[in-house]
């Protein structure tokens, strides 16, 4: 058995044991949130980390997944799973719509366009009151499983599945194409790689995964208001990817875990909490630009 497989099996065992080791509803809730953030970080990493497309609009797809699934369940009486499939489809399609513009743009221009997309989506959620209830919000939303441990197993199980799928994807020739586009689009095109096709593919898959994470958010919080999907959320997702290690598989997972648990662990510091959190983030970016993965590799090289 290879080391990778051993790590993977150990990780699964740890995941299975976590809800039993952490018995309080609060920390079990944080575990669910963490699994959701892992999904979001993985989705953004595919676009930014592997394809090199600076997308600042990921919160929009998260919100689309949350709203589409909730509205279908609450207003039209759909089954949660059917609604989730529709929500993932809707987020993926809108990801394609953004990709239609994104394939023509690069760097800062793409960042601004995707930021604009996030702002437009947020404004639609706020102002399309007949459908979304606007700022009045949607309340009394039930999760697919009421027990936090069951909800954690569900979301974490999906996160593991998504991880495996993306891991296989980036190891395949498709992953080589995505990385080639990331490194140099013109060179990639000269090798016969269809830039537009693969960029659109990355946007679509990334958006669909973010939409999938969005399906679990409303049931977890019990409340759905547009403010949960403002552009600050996009930056939080990006921080997870950068802190963990962009363009690696394990990096965004570590980033999501650290940035979910750190603010909660710092609650004991009261008013100093956000200051410590901000300083910690700044130090990571300053001294570990490649994130935790790079820091680990540097440490391992030094130890050898």
């Amino acid at each position: 058995m290879s080391a990778r497989r051993i790590y993977f099996v150990v990780s699964i065992l740890v995941l299975a044991a976590l809800p039993w080791l952490i018995a309080t509803p609060y920390w079990r809730g944080i575990l669910v949130l963490c699994a959701m953030n892992v999904l979001l970080a993985l989705s953004l990493n595919l676009v930014i980390g592997y394809t090199g497309q600076l997308n600042l609009g990921q919160s929009a797809f998260f919100g689309i997944g949350a709203y589409v699934s909730t509205i279908l369940v609450k207003s039209y009486g759909w089954n949660f799973w059917l609604a989730a499939v529709a929500a993932v489809g809707a987020a993926g399609l809108l990801g394609l719509a953004l990709a239609a513009f994104a394939v023509r743009l690069r760097g800062h221009y793409l960042a601004i366009a995707s930021l604009g997309f996030a702002v437009i989506t947020y404004q639609v959620l706020v102002n399309w009151e007949n459908v979304t209830q606007g700022v009045r919000g949607i309340y009394g939303i039930m999760p697919p499983f009421s027990h936090p441990a069951a909800l954690f197993y569900l979301v974490a199980g999906i996160a593991v599945l998504v991880y495996v799928l993306i891991d296989n994807l980036v190891r395949s020739p498709v992953g080589d194409s995505l990385r080639a586009i990331r490194e140099d689009e013109v060179s990639a095109a000269s090798l016969g790689i269809n830039r537009a096709l693969w960029k659109a593919f990355a946007f679509c898959v990334g958006a669909a995964i973010a939409g999938l994470a969005g399906c679990f958010y409303p049931g977890f919080v019990g409340t759905l208001v547009p403010d949960a999907f403002n552009i600050v959320e996009s930056f939080t997702m990006m921080a997870m990817v950068i802190v963990g290690g962009m363009g690696t598989m394990i990096g965004p997972v570590l980033g999501a875990i650290v940035l979910t648990f750190l603010p909660e662990l710092l609650r004991g510091f009261g008013e100093l909490r956000l200051m410590i959190y901000g300083i910690a983030l700044t130090l990571v970016v300053l001294f570990m630009p490649g994130g935790m993965v790079q820091a680990w590799m540097a440490l391992r090289a030094r130890l050898r």
Binding site: P25, Y26, G29, G137, V221, T223, D227, A228, R267, R273
Partner: peptide, 22 residues
């Protein structure tokens, strides 16, 4: 015991669960 709930539904949900638990 004080908790920062930041005027946000998610933060308030986490804070109230924490306060109830601990």
């Amino acid at each position: 015991q004080y908790e920062d709930s930041a005027c946000s539904p998610l933060q308030a949900t986490n804070a109230v669960k924490r306060v109830l638990d601990q």
